[in-house]
Every structure is written in C-alpha cells, then in structure tokens.
C-alpha cells in the first residue's frame, strides 16, 4: 500500500531521513516510535505531501506521490496530481487543526462536498454517522472552541474519516490532551482499527496502545529504521540496545 524507496529528506544542511526504505501492506497498522527529533512526523508529512522528498520516491496504492512516470522516467508532479493522490490519504494532527470559522458540521462536510462532490444531504448523513461513531452526535452544530480538547480531537478524527481514506496518518494525536481524556480517544482509535480495513500509520508515545493496536512497530533513530518487528517481539525482546534504552526511558517517565 505504502512504499518508501531510498527516501532522503533535508532541511537546509540537516539530513533528517537518509536512504529510508520500507513498505506497509494494505490494512496494516504500523506504529512509529523513536526519540523526539528522529523524523517520525516528517515521514507522515511527506506522505501527506506537506513536505517534498529530496531524493527517492514514495508511492501509495501503486501511484507515486510527487512524481509521475513519463516515457519510462520519473518527473516531478504538479499540484493537481498531488491533490488527486491526497484524496485517498487522511491525517489527524497533534493540535487537531479544526477550522475555527466553521461549526463541527462545517468541518465535516467541507471536504466531502467540495473535494469528493457529495451532495449536502449525503455529506450531512455521513457527518452525523461519524459523529455518532465518535460519541459526539449531539455536538454537530457546536463550535470547535466550545469543545474540550478530547472532543476536538474526536471531531478531527471524524473529519479525516469523512473522506473515506485508504490510508490514515495519526501524529501523536493524544499528546496535546489532558491525561483523563487520552483513554477515550485511544479507545475510539482501537474501534476504528477493528471495524475498518484502513491502512494506519501512527506515531505515539502510548506504548500500551502501540502494543495492542499495531501489527508492526518500527523503531526510528537518526533518520533510519533500526528495528522493525511485531509488537510482541519489539516490546519484550528487542534486538538492539538502543531500542531497549528508549523503551526503558519511555516506560519509566
């Protein structure tokens, strides 16, 4: 479903990702862990085309993200191509990024009506269903600022799902929440993981969640994958000292 092939990403002179290659199968749930600054967010932002690769290629569902094939060679793609590929990818941000100039309903129907071309009625039905799913059915006409952080994040998840994405990117979606609100959001994500076949790429520091949610965990350090294993193995018997140290530090914080 997702293929990174020799990806390199620099910010100025600072090389964040080098020669990064990995793939994710359709429907797979993959969690990225690793110390802060190791490039986890950058990977998700590359997939969302919020950043551009400096070398290598990324493909999703068999299509290159920021290249098109022309006469056997790859050439950089234009904005229109990116927009086409983006339709299949959804992202939930650490800071929610709800649009404050719209109600909850507005946030949920905006892209389905304007990007997918759904009718207002269809989009409204979809919005109501998703809000019921995330447990906020009665908040449809509320304003994002009237909601708690946990509620805002659940709306943001519903907003991403309203696009019926094939791939969902979750970047530390509980990090900005008060501790008592974290469990509710994680439970919602588990439910979504079980009831859909969306491919999910997730960055989190909630190791308990990572453990029972993921099919695979990738440990990042210094812009490389240093360990890639099922959670049962990686959390109990990691191959690398670096992974052990990191898990120690996270679990004992």
């Amino acid at each position: 479903m997702i293929v990174f092939d020799g990806v390199e990403k620099r910010f100025g002179d600072h090389v964040v990702l080098k020669e990064l290659s990995f793939s994710v199968a359709p429907g797979e749930h993959v969690t990225l862990i690793g110390p802060s600054g190791s490039g986890k967010t950058t990977i998700l932002r590359l997939l969302m085309t919020l950043e551009k690769v400096d070398a290598g290629t990324i493909s999703v569902g068999g299509r290159y993200l920021s290249h098109i094939e022309r006469g056997g060679t790859l050439v950089p793609a234009d904005e229109k191509h990116s927009r086409e590929v983006r339709k299949k990818i959804g992202m939930v941000f650490q800071q929610f990024n709800l649009f404050p100039n719209m109600t909850v309903r507005g946030n949920l129907i905006e892209a389905p009506t304007r990007v997918l071309g759904l009718s207002k009625d269809e989009a409204n039905v979809r919005a109501q269903d998703l809000l019921d799913l995330v447990g906020l059915g009665e908040k449809i006409d509320a304003h994002p600022t009237q909601l708690s952080g946990g509620q805002q994040q659940r709306v943001a998840i519903a907003r991403a799902l309203a696009m019926r994405p094939d791939v969902l990117l979750l970047d530390e979606v509980t990090s900005a929440l008060d501790p008592e609100l974290v469990a509710g959001v994680l439970k919602l994500l588990r439910d979504i993981g079980e009831s859909t076949d969306i491919t999910i790429l997730c960055v989190t520091h909630e190791m308990g969640f990572a453990r029972d949610f993921s099919d695979r965990v990738m440990m990042f350090d210094g812009g490389r994958v240093i360990e890639d294993a099922p959670p049962g193995k990686l959390f109990t018997d990691p191959d690398h000292q670096r992974t052990r140290d990191f898990l120690q530090a996270v679990l004992n914080h």
């Binding site: 969302m48 990818i89 959804g90 941000f93 905006e110 304007r114 990007v115």
Partner: peptide
C-alpha cells in the same frame, strides 16, 4: 496548521 489541515483534506 490551518493550511495544512486544509491540504490534508484535499482542498
């Protein structure tokens, strides 16, 4: 972040 939210929705 507002631009990015809008991009992520494919607007």
């Amino acid at each position: 972040a507002q631009y990015e939210g809008a991009i992520a929705l494919g607007l």
